[in-house]
């Protein structure tokens, strides 16, 4: 049975802040920063947007593309995020309710830093392939937190993407997946802390690159594929540089990466990052083209997926707005309004 993506949907809030406006506040040189991280501006949620609202918007777009799938046929909803609105009370139930999937549905929030939602996709693949359900949905969404003045402030963004997984009406087949996981303290947020902390340059070699590279290699070995078999490669995008470096280590060329490299314009949407990159690729891929996607979550692990686009893609993707539309739908905020929206002022 061919199992894969039956519907996908993206959502990015309208508002942006430019790196130069953040740099100005902290007395840093904007040029140096943007050259260093390859991110020029990032998306910012409105005061009335959070992970739940972003997840619902993305999921509604996914439903539009999953032509003919009835809400009652979707029997699992997973929402992966680092910024669930509640510490206790699942975002996934709000999403399930807003989409009309309730009550015969399993729902859960997943957490694995930025790869929580690809773990959800793997769960859906298993449930569908095992014959337990017809369709499952996994959504990665975040309104990423960053401490004021931290380097993360230039990249921590808001956005999300939703994927409906099933065996009927597949517009992109998932031929294989595998994971690579170790305990690596590169980035964390303790219970009750408002902002995450990170171990600086330690987040690179032993964390991001180790997992991404090994996981991708492992999947290609398993499937007997090589970088040239893929038209596109999608990685988690903590900044504009890491994905390009990971690609080059693995033997992909820049052209295979750039179509998914949306981080320069919207920042790092954490749990939404690799999935929004994949959505951007699905917005343009031709039937038969292959995509390798590898997510990354600090702590640390990666999930790799090998995907082949089917001939249903061209008709179905037109049923919802593409990532590029959301990237270009924008308005700019000053740092002060950004600080208000992100609740940086506290009583």
């Amino acid at each position: 049975m061919k199992v894969g993506i039956v519907g996908y949907g993206a959502y990015i809030p309208k508002w942006r802040i430019k790196a130069e406006n953040i740099a100005k506040v902290w007395g840093q040189d904007a040029q140096t920063i943007t050259n260093g991280i390859g991110v020029h501006e990032k998306s910012v949620p409105s005061l009335d947007e959070d992970t739940a609202t972003i997840a619902v918007e993305a999921a509604r777009n996914a439903m539009k593309r999953a032509n003919g799938v009835k809400p009652s046929e979707i029997s699992a909803v997973y929402v992966g995020s680092e910024s669930h609105p509640y510490a206790v009370k699942p975002t996934a139930v709000t999403v399930a309710e807003a989409l009309g999937l309730t009550p015969y549905v399993t729902a859960a929030d997943t957490e694995f830093a930025c790869k929580a939602a690809t773990a959800g996709i793997q769960a859906c693949l298993g449930l569908v392939k095992g014959g337990y359900m017809k369709y499952g949905m996994s959504i990665g969404a975040d309104t990423a937190q960053s401490a004021p003045g931290d380097a993360l402030e230039y990249t921590a963004a808001a956005g999300g993407a939703a994927y409906i997984i099933g065996g009927d009406g597949v517009l992109a087949e998932i031929e294989g997946t595998c994971s690579y996981t170790q305990d690596v303290p590169d980035f964390w947020r303790r219970e009750g802390s408002l902002y995450p902390k990170h171990a600086g340059r330690f987040t690179g070699e032993p964390a991001y690159f180790e997992q991404i590279v090994k996981c991708s290699k492992s999947l290609m070995e398993k499937l007997g594929t090589k970088p040239s078999d893929y038209t596109y490669v999608v990685f988690h995008m903590p900044n504009g540089k890491f994905p390009l470096k990971a690609a080059s280590i693995l033997g992909f060329d820049t052209k295979q990466v750039t179509p998914s490299l949306i981080v320069q314009k919207i920042g790092n949407t954490y749990s939404g990052s690799s999935l929004l990159g994949l959505a951007a690729v699905l917005d343009r891929a031709k039937p038969g083209e292959r995509v390798l996607m590898t997510s990354y979550g600090s702590g640390a692990g990666s999930d790799s997926f090998s995907i082949t686009v089917t001939d249903q893609i061209e008709e179905r993707r037109r049923l919802a707005p593409p990532v590029q539309y959301y990237i270009e739908r924008k308005g700019y905020l000053s740092y002060s309004i950004y600080a208000k929206n992100r609740k940086l002022f506290r009583e």
Binding site: S46, A52, T53, T94, A98
Partner: peptide
């Protein structure tokens, strides 16, 4: 789909 309001910082969120 948006937040309508929050009931204090520790209360429920109305969407």
């Amino acid at each position: 789909f948006r937040k309508l309001f929050e009931q204090e910082q520790s209360g429920i969120i109305s969407y």
